[in-house]
Design a protein around this nucleic acid. Structure first.
Lengths: 103, 103
DNA sequence: CGTTCATATTGCCATACGGCTATATGAAGG
DNA sequence: CCTTCATATAGCCGTATGGCAATATGAACG
């Protein structure tokens, strides 16, 4: 199975949700299943994708597999987005100016 | 055909490249084809996806279809990323500290 | 109005994706 | 060891994706 880019990994809503859940701290896989309205194997599959994209890491603790966030690939995405930032803020500024002129 | 999320639209490298090309200004579709090592219909298909995701807009100018960037959906992605930012900078700070201590 | 140029759409194909159920694996505990 | 609990893998299926070649569309211009 070949690794997915961070971009592709983020395309799936359940996977973004998993990352959101891990943002507050590490969690065993089972806890993720509870929060996801998705079968256990389904979650496991998504976790594999996230692992291969380098977005999460696993640690074995007793019978549990504890997942934690690995945010570095997100930094790359954010970097790609950076040059666009001025474009949308330009637009928002224009909107603000428009609203000022037409209150 | 149903609209794709910005996240999903960004999953495809050619589509990110198209956005990068449009970042410097609007361009007719043909010009994008020249830059993309992809068939003309292929590019057209990706442009359709980007249109449906609200990431580009088209304007007809003579025989040409001129595409321009519409960055707002990217702002949404950036917003989602925001809470993660502190996590990877934390990590980088830790790295810096480590390097200071072990020069 | 018929042709030309630029682009979009269609049809087709192979492969990937995301979901499920059933089964395998592997650590703990008795 | 044998069982149990937690998770991963396998196998299967329907649909989506991304690519191409061929064709349709639509504006401009003679």
């Amino acid at each position: 199975m070949n690794g997915m880019s961070a971009y592709a990994a983020l395309a799936e809503p359940h996977r973004r949700r998993i990352l959101d859940l891990l943002r507050t701290g590490e969690r065993p896989a089972g806890e993720l299943v509870e929060h996801l309205d998705l079968s256990q194997p389904g979650v496991s599959k998504h976790l594999k994708v996230l692992r291969e994209a380098g977005l999460v890491a696993v640690r074995t603790h007793g019978k549990q597999r504890v997942y934690s966030l690995r945010p570095e690939p997100l930094a790359e995405v954010a970097e790609w987005l950076e040059p666009y930032r001025m474009l949308w803020s330009q637009r928002l500024d224009a909107l603000e100016r428009h609203l000022e002129d037409n209150p």
